[in-house]
Nucleic acid binder design. Structure first.
Length: 256
DNA sequence: ATGGCAATGTTTCATTGA
């Protein structure tokens, strides 16, 4: 199974990038974040014609997640949101695909350390951690893929000194990310040797991408039963180039 | 070489993202 995650920063705008990428990369499952579409406007017909079935949880303007599955594979037991956690923001959808419990997650950005949004982020991560733990208790094979809005370590940051203490790298956020791992998840990217300076997000401003001033904040986490099946994990940096790129690049993991 | 903010709606600016 080839499993990818991509924060598209508006599915509407990114469809002309997504469709040829699906055709060339041919992933089996794609977790999308920041679709920014209410469900009535989700382009499921277009994706269907492209050979994929989409399951989604969206809202107007902000957030929105989806799990897109190649025809021939069934997605079952769709669950939207975090059960038992009241949240007006659409940030999680889960489905079982080919025996793997797949979760597409969009962790809150947090805006600035100490802000209301930062407090919301940390509280959301607590609820998500409990949800991941419950999912791991019920399923051996789990993949949690998405935009975590946390760079786990300094090597995931282009310039750790300039980012120290800032949102996306602050210690409470990194502790929350370690809390995800502590439930029994593994960062698939770090199962393999990776080139230094590999990131998944670059600011649109200030020549962020040309200067490779990026962060690795998009991740594919695998349960310990599933991790040994992972043969590769890479970030598709080429998708940050060209016409109207998202500010995020896809992360692609392959499972034998 | 890459590209010098982008997307949305509240729309000609404010808000949010990271």
């Amino acid at each position: 199974m080839k499993l990818a995650t991509w924060n598209v920063n508006s599915l509407n705008v990114r469809l002309p990038r997504l469709l040829p990428w699906l055709a060339s990369e041919m992933p089996d499952v794609v977790c999308l974040q920041e679709t920014k579409l209410e469900d009535a406007k989700f382009p499921h017909d277009v994706l269907h014609d492209a050979g994929y079935e989409a399951h989604f949880a969206g809202q107007k303007t902000y957030n929105g997640v989806a799990i897109v599955v190649r025809h021939g594979l069934a997605a079952t037991d769709i669950v939207r949101g975090i059960p038992g956690y009241a949240d007006t923001q659409q940030r999680v959808i889960a489905a079982t695909v080919d025996g793997v419990r797949v979760m597409s997650v969009y962790v809150p950005n947090g805006q600035a350390v100490g802000s209301d949004k930062y407090v919301y982020k940390l509280g959301w991560c607590d609820a998500a951690r409990d949800y991941f733990a419950a999912t791991l208790a019920a399923h051996a094979d789990v993949a949690v893929a998405g935009d975590f809005n946390v760079a786990p370590e300094d090597r995931d940051v282009h310039d750790p000194a300039s980012w120290e203490g800032q949102v996306l790298v602050s210690e409470p956020e990194r502790a929350a990310f370690r809390g995800f791992l502590a439930t029994g998840l593994v960062d698939s990217f770090r199962l393999f040797d990776q080139p230094p300076g590999t990131f998944s997000w670059w600011d649109y401003r200030m020549l962020g991408f040309p200067k490779n001033r990026g962060l690795r904040i998009d991740h594919v986490l695998l349960s310990k039963a599933l991790a040994p099946r992972c043969t590769t994990c890479r970030i598709d940096r080429a998708m940050r180039k060209g016409e109207k790129p998202s500010d995020h690049a896809p992360v692609i993991a392959e499972l034998a």
